[in-house]
């Protein structure tokens, strides 16, 4: 299978390019390698979250607990590391991923057992996980001095550095997990039997069952994968901000959902591209961070993002509906 760019992604690329050109026209300072590196560094956590959510959405589900999982995984892991004086990045990532996988497993079990909309269940587990963490682990904040030094080293590490007029800037090492996760997820969806199953269940659960996929098992894979990626992102996030708070991340789920939807994931499941999700995050990120450069206050963020989101939902759902009606398929 070749890496292809479909029509929807072309439109997204065009919008992003046009918007960048406009921002650069109003404020030439925007066009610099610093901006590019900055975007890569600050959007890296959102990118991994979005890719994890994309897999869930392709399977026809939704997950709003991934931020709570990321927080639970990283906060608990780092608490353990501080308590026992462990300073090892692999340990941090490994343990946080295990927490993430277990919490994802809980999500999948509840959804399989109760057979209710995943939104409501993951909304419950979001509060449950965060509540358990703050009640039974700890609810203290930790500053830079107490954290294991390996985290900050990773957060500040660069792959290579470039000399610019205003000093040296480097490409953050945070891009490594993003690239790894993107490639792994792309491979998972396109080249494995599990990936075929995820797409099949998302398209039509009953048909998928009849050709031999177990939707329940597919849901385990999907939510555990989302949990694993969330656990990883938690560590990347803490490494970047170099402090540990018990209340960060939570509440930022819906913009990620918006990004994945804008990125062209089919809302009812069965279709979605990793590259599309990346473009969706980039577009939201640009709208969020560059309005100031074109002279609008950041109060306008939501209006722009909301408009783009509604327009994208309306067009993609309407096209889907026309196609369905032509084939006499009625979904509502």
């Amino acid at each position: 299978m070749k890496f292809t760019i479909d029509r929807y992604q072309k439109i997204l690329i065009f919008i992003i390019a046009a918007y960048c050109a406009f921002v650069g026209f109003v404020n030439p300072a925007f066009f610099s390698i610093t901006t590019v590196f900055d975007i890569i560094r600050t959007s890296s956590t959102s990118l991994i979250f979005a890719i994890g959510l994309l897999v869930v959405m392709i399977s026809g589900g939704i997950d709003v607990s991934f931020m709570a999982i990321a927080l639970f995984g990283s906060y608990t892991t780092i608490n353990i590391m501080i308590a026992y004086g462990i300073d090892n990045l692999a340990f941090a990532v490994g343990l946080s991923i295990i927490f993430g996988a277990v919490l994802g497993l809980i999500n999948a079990s509840l959804i399989n057992w109760l057979k209710l909309p995943p939104f409501i269940i993951t909304l419950g587990t979001q509060n449950l996980f965060h509540g358990i963490m703050t009640t039974f682990v700890s609810d203290k904040s930790f500053g830079a001095g107490v954290l294991p030094p390996c985290l900050n080293q990773f957060g500040r590490a660069t792959l290579f550095q470039i000399q610019t007029g205003s000093g040296t800037i480097g490409l953050s090492a945070s891009i490594l997990p993003v690239v790894f996760v993107a490639l792994a997820t792309w491979g998972l969806i396109n080249f494995t039997m599990i990936g075929r199953g995820i797409v099949a269940v998302g398209n039509d659960e009953e048909s998928a069952r009849r050709i031999g996929f177990s939707p329940a098992r597919i849901r385990y894979y999907v939510y555990v994968w989302s949990g694993i990626l969330a656990g990883l992102t938690g560590i990347v996030y803490v490494a970047q901000i170099n402090a540990l708070y018990p209340n960060k991340l939570i509440g930022g789920e819906l913009p990620i959902v918006a990004a994945v939807v804008i990125g062209g994931a089919k809302i009812t499941g069965g279709d979605g591209k990793v590259f599309g999700a990346i473009l969706g995050v980039l577009l939201i990120y640009l709208l969020n961070s560059t309005l100031i450069l074109i002279g609008l206050s950041s109060s306008w963020n939501d209006l722009f993002i909301g408009s783009v989101l509604v327009a994208s939902i309306a067009t993609s759902s309407y096209q889907e509906r026309i196609r369905n009606r032509k084939n006499l398929i009625f979904t509502d």
Binding site: V257, L303, I305, S307, L309, V310, I313
Partner: peptide, 10 residues
């Protein structure tokens, strides 16, 4: 769910 997420932000 998704439509009202969009209008919520809007």
């Amino acid at each position: 769910l998704i439509a009202s997420l969009g209008t919520m932000i809007l």
